[in-house]
Amino acid sequence: MKSIITEPMIPKPFRIHRKLKETHDTYTIELESTNGADGFPFSAGQFNMLYIFGVGEVPISISSDPSMPKMLKHTARSVGTVTKALLNLRRGDILGVRGPFGSHWPVEEAVGNDVVIVAGGIGLAPMRPVLYSFISHRDKYGKIILLYGARTPEDLLYKKELELWRGRFDLEVKVIVDSASGNWRGNVGVVTTLIPRIQFDPLHTVAMICGPEVMMRYTLKELQNCGIKNENIFVSMERNMKCGICLCGHCQFGPKFVCKDGPVFCYDHIKELFGKREI
């Protein structure tokens, strides 16, 4: 598909409709187009470049429901100059949006299969659109399993939704934290330890992983041990990005450009690169 986009470097203004506090340093901002009517079609797993007036731009994955393109949600953790400025914005403020960019999760390809989603930390954000899609077409899929690991119970994202999903009979949701105080009654440990505790049909399972690279590395091994084929495992990569349109060269991952070929990769296509140091 070849589309010549005339001015993909120009941000479009969006208004902050709502700002939700997820954890002490992580917020979800809901954006609506300033000219009202326009929707913002995207696929689960894609990202936008968010521009804060005079501060700069950051790539943030879209965490809202792809079937509701009028309301765009982004969940960001305040770690750098731009994300700090982003999360200081208030309801009614305007920011710039460029996108959506990149590849998406194999939502269509997974039809008829079991699905295992493994997320670490803020890696749950790009997974939420997938979960929305699966839930709204629940009968098209086999088992749907979400394994989610965070540092502490306080760092868990989307707590209300997690509880809602966990309460459903047709979803299996397991949550684990690295460390917790005495009043945590849930699992403690790394997310990979949840994998032996779930059951799925390994030959008909699509796995999707998003989290820190080291977490993805060990999760991969564990899933491969269960017998999931490389071509059915998908990971979301992160690299520095400036343009989002494959022209600035920053997001190179071996021969791949994360902004164009990724961020979602089929593991089979990057197995030679994945896990190599400093690539």
Binding site: F53, G54, V55, E57, K242, C243, L247, C248, G249, H250
Partner: peptide, 26 residues
């Protein structure tokens, strides 16, 4: 070599801003 970065600059009043593309190096 084609890699570039972008830099955002503002005036002191924070009324005007500009985006510049500059050559960058890996």
């Amino acid at each position: 070599c084609f890699c570039t970065t972008v830099e955002d600059v503002t005036d002191l009043m924070s009324e005007h801003a500009e985006r510049w593309r500059k050559l960058d190096s890996c």
